[in-house]
Amino acid sequence: TRRLSELRVIDLRAELKKRNLDTGGNKSVLMERLKKAVKEEGQD
């Protein structure tokens, strides 16, 4: 898996959309949101 920081905004939005998460905001907001989601998934 590529590091989140290497993803483009369009990629971040696609990942968030797959998880039914909000896709609004700038790159840093999107990255934080996705990071949190990935962390929570890992705790399942």
Results as ranks from 00 to 15, higher is better:
Leu34Cys: 01
Leu16Ala: 07
Val29Tyr: 02
Glu40Pro: 04
Val38Met: 14
Asp11Met: 00
Lys35Gly: 14
Arg19Gly: 04
Ala14Gln: 07
Asp11Phe: 01
Asp22Gly: 08
Leu30Ala: 06
Leu4Trp: 01
Arg33Cys: 02
Leu30Lys: 03
Leu12Asn: 04
Ala14Ser: 11
Ser5Pro: 05
Arg8Ala: 15
Asn20Ile: 02
Met31Ala: 04
Thr23Leu: 11
Leu21Val: 02
Val9Ala: 10
Asn20Asp: 12
Lys36Asp: 12
Arg2Val: 11
Gly25Phe: 00
Thr23Cys: 09
Asp22Cys: 10
Leu4Thr: 07
Leu7Phe: 12
Val38Gly: 08
Ser28Tyr: 06
Val38Asn: 05
Ser5Ala: 13
Glu6Phe: 00
Leu12Thr: 03
Ser28Asn: 09
Lys27Glu: 12
Glu41Cys: 05
Lys36Cys: 08
Asp11Cys: 03
Gln43Cys: 08
Gly25Asp: 01
Arg2Gly: 15
Asp11Ile: 00
Arg33Gly: 09
Ser5Lys: 10
Asp11Leu: 00
Asn26Asp: 15
Ser28Thr: 15
Gly24His: 12
Leu21Asn: 00
Glu6Ile: 02
Leu30Thr: 03
Leu30Asp: 07
Leu21Phe: 03
Asp11Glu: 14
Glu41Thr: 06
Asn26Lys: 12
Leu30Met: 11
Thr1Trp: 03
Ala14Trp: 12
Asn26Val: 12
Arg19Asn: 00
Lys39Glu: 14
Asn20His: 05
Leu21Cys: 07
Ser28Cys: 05
Leu4Ile: 15
Val29Gln: 11
Glu32Met: 11
Asp22Lys: 06
Asp11Ser: 03
Arg19Ala: 05
Lys35Trp: 06
Asp22Ala: 11
Leu30Ile: 11
Ser5Asn: 14
Ala14Arg: 06
Leu12Tyr: 02
Leu16Tyr: 00
Arg3Tyr: 05
Ile10Leu: 12
Val29Gly: 05
Asp11Thr: 02
Leu34Ala: 07
Glu6Met: 03
Asn26Trp: 00
Lys36Arg: 13
Lys36Asn: 09
Glu41Gly: 11
Lys27Met: 07
Asp44Cys: 14
Leu4Gln: 08
Val9Met: 09
Arg3Asp: 15
Leu4Gly: 08
Val38Phe: 07
Arg19Tyr: 02
Arg2Met: 14
Leu16Gln: 00
Leu21Ser: 02
Lys39Gly: 14
Leu7Gln: 09
Lys18Ala: 13
Thr23Ile: 05
Thr23Tyr: 04
Asn26Leu: 04
Glu40Ile: 10
Asn20Tyr: 04
Lys36Leu: 10
Val29Leu: 11
Leu21Gln: 08
Arg3Ile: 10
Asn26Glu: 15
Leu4Met: 14
Glu41Ser: 09
Leu34Thr: 09
Lys27Cys: 06
Leu12Arg: 01
Thr1His: 13
Met31Glu: 08
Arg2Gln: 13
Lys35Pro: 10
Gly42Met: 07
Met31Phe: 04
Thr1Glu: 15
Lys35Val: 13
Ser5Val: 07
Ser5His: 10
Gly42Asp: 09
Leu30Gln: 06
Arg3Met: 08
Arg3Glu: 15
Ser28Gly: 12
Glu32Cys: 06
Val9His: 03
Leu12Ser: 04
Ser5Asp: 13
Ile10Val: 14
Ser28Lys: 15
Leu34Lys: 10
Ser5Trp: 03
Ile10Cys: 15
Leu12Ile: 11
Asp11Pro: 04
Leu4Val: 09
Gly24Phe: 04
Glu41Arg: 05
Gln43His: 11
